[in-house]
Design a protein around this nucleic acid. Structure first.
Lengths: 134, 134
DNA sequence: TATGATATGTTATATTATAACATGTAATAT
DNA sequence: ATATTACATGTTATAATATAACATATCATA
């Protein structure tokens, strides 16, 4: 089983480095464009690296934006469930990392006779900085 | 401003009819394939109808599946925020329609100094029928 | 050092979505 | 009733996102 501590390959590390230094989530082809100088030539190389990074919880996908973001949490176990605050003004994304969200969704699911496994939450609005400037 | 009560055009009605009779969410090209016999020939015709139907709250998009689903609620006001229970076994989708979700997300956002505007929630798991069969 | 599992490189292609522009239709203001 | 306006349509082309298939390479470990 893949662990967050396992050693990354060159391609994986290159993609992760880029994402970790990005202020906003990046799209796959934006990633490709940015790391072509490092020898990565095809979309598939990017997608494969992303797949692995997502699998081990180092990267998450923001579905509604087809974009990818590095996880800021150490030893992230969110290989499946994710919760984001997405600023509609500046595109910055914060990941919510709270057990109570999963608990809440489990309860909500129960009420609908549905067995919760995982979730994807994308909250849109205005971040701390942007809401001040209206 | 577009209201849920306004009259639909032929293309819009055709797409909506199909979605309303579908048990699972449908992808845009699946919609196209299904209604080609009704004179709709190009993807753009489908996407345009979907755009409008989404705008007036008759249809919602499930971002993580690139799929579309008819809203079962009368006079749906969810032109923006949506919450789904998605069965991983049978692909059936139920829409949660609860004020308390928005309230809860507003509170969670506040705690992160973020001004909530809208959300997209996709809960994966097992529906009533499928969880019985394991 | 053979083995098995995983990653890579590469080409091609599938899938999802939009641009651009000419034409058509339908409500309503004159 | 007709000019005007706004919106919807039809059509072709293309952009953006993502995967298939297959040959080769790398690396841990039996």
């Amino acid at each position: 089983m893949a662990l967050a501590t396992e050693k990354l390959t060159n391609n994986q590390q290159t993609v992760l480095d880029l994402l970790e230094h990005s202020k906003e989530p990046l799209k796959a082809y934006a990633i490709l464009f940015n790391i072509q100088k490092k020898g990565i030539k095809s979309p598939l190389q990017v997608y494969r690296a992303l797949d692995k990074l997502i699998e081990i919880g180092k990267v998450h996908k923001i579905e509604s934006k087809n974009s990818f973001i590095a996880c800021k949490h150490k030893n992230c176990d969110s290989t499946t469930s994710t919760s984001f605050l997405i600023c509609e003004t500046c595109d910055q994304v914060t990941e919510l990392k709270k057990k109570n969200l999963s608990l809440y969704f489990t309860k909500q699911s129960d009420q609908a006779d549905f067995k919760y496994t995982k979730h994807n939450l994308e909250i849109y609005g205005a971040c701390k900085d942007c809401k001040i400037k209206h």
